[in-house]
Simulated assay, not measured.
Amino acid sequence: MKRKVLTLAAMVAALAVSSVMAADVSYTSVLSGKVDSVVPVGTTVAEGDVLLTVESLAGPMPAARANSSGTVKSVTIQPGSAVTQGTVVVVVETK
């Protein structure tokens, strides 16, 4: 059996490629209102997961959803506070 040996340069190049592939994605609220819930920092999310809900007469409504997989890097809003449409609410580091 042949073993493939990676050189130091090849390992550094592989690490550089993997770090370039990760990117921060900012998500904005599509609704205005009082924040009902927001996903906490460190949470792993998948495409379609609800990141933020806003109170409405019909109950909590999704105001931001993930469009890719990753880990929540930062949250700029807290439950109970007011949010306006277009405000960046969550930043996700994609994989």
Score class of each variant (00 low, 15 high):
72 V>H: 07
56 S>C: 10
65 R>E: 13
63 A>H: 03
66 A>K: 03
76 T>I: 00
78 Q>I: 03
65 R>T: 15
60 P>R: 11
75 V>A: 03
75 V>S: 03
68 S>N: 00
48 G>H: 04
50 V>G: 07
46 A>L: 05
51 L>Y: 07
82 A>S: 14
58 A>F: 10
56 S>G: 14
68 S>D: 00
55 E>N: 14
76 T>H: 13
74 S>I: 01
50 V>D: 14
64 A>C: 05
47 E>N: 13
46 A>K: 15
51 L>E: 06
49 D>H: 10
46 A>D: 09
50 V>R: 08
61 M>W: 02
59 G>P: 09
47 E>I: 01
78 Q>G: 01
63 A>L: 09
66 A>M: 07
47 E>V: 05
73 K>G: 00
69 S>F: 00
66 A>H: 04
46 A>C: 01
75 V>E: 03
63 A>C: 11
63 A>W: 03
52 L>P: 04
68 S>L: 07
53 T>I: 04
81 S>A: 12
77 I>Y: 03
61 M>C: 02
59 G>C: 12
80 G>E: 06
51 L>S: 08
62 P>F: 05
50 V>S: 14
78 Q>D: 10
49 D>I: 08
59 G>A: 12
51 L>T: 09
66 A>T: 05
76 T>N: 14
73 K>E: 12
56 S>Y: 08
71 T>S: 12
69 S>N: 13
71 T>N: 09
57 L>S: 13
57 L>H: 01
55 E>K: 13
76 T>K: 14
61 M>Y: 02
67 N>C: 00
81 S>Q: 13
57 L>I: 11
72 V>D: 08
62 P>L: 08
62 P>I: 06
74 S>F: 02
73 K>Q: 13
70 G>E: 02
52 L>Y: 11
74 S>P: 01
79 P>K: 09
81 S>G: 07
46 A>W: 02
59 G>Y: 08
71 T>Q: 13
59 G>H: 09
77 I>F: 04
75 V>Y: 03
57 L>E: 14
75 V>M: 05
50 V>P: 06
71 T>C: 01
58 A>W: 08
57 L>N: 06
66 A>F: 03
66 A>C: 10
62 P>E: 08
71 T>I: 15
54 V>D: 09
67 N>A: 01
67 N>Q: 03
73 K>W: 01
67 N>K: 03
63 A>K: 05
54 V>G: 07
75 V>P: 02
76 T>P: 00
72 V>R: 08
72 V>I: 11
51 L>M: 13
65 R>W: 01
51 L>W: 09
49 D>R: 06
65 R>V: 15
58 A>G: 08
51 L>I: 13
80 G>K: 06
74 S>M: 02
48 G>F: 06
67 N>S: 07
80 G>R: 08
60 P>S: 14
69 S>D: 13
54 V>L: 13
77 I>T: 07
50 V>H: 05
67 N>T: 12
60 P>W: 04
63 A>Q: 07
81 S>H: 04
49 D>E: 11
54 V>P: 04
80 G>A: 05
78 Q>H: 10
68 S>I: 00
48 G>P: 05
54 V>M: 11
54 V>R: 04
75 V>T: 12
57 L>G: 11
52 L>V: 14
78 Q>A: 15
66 A>E: 04
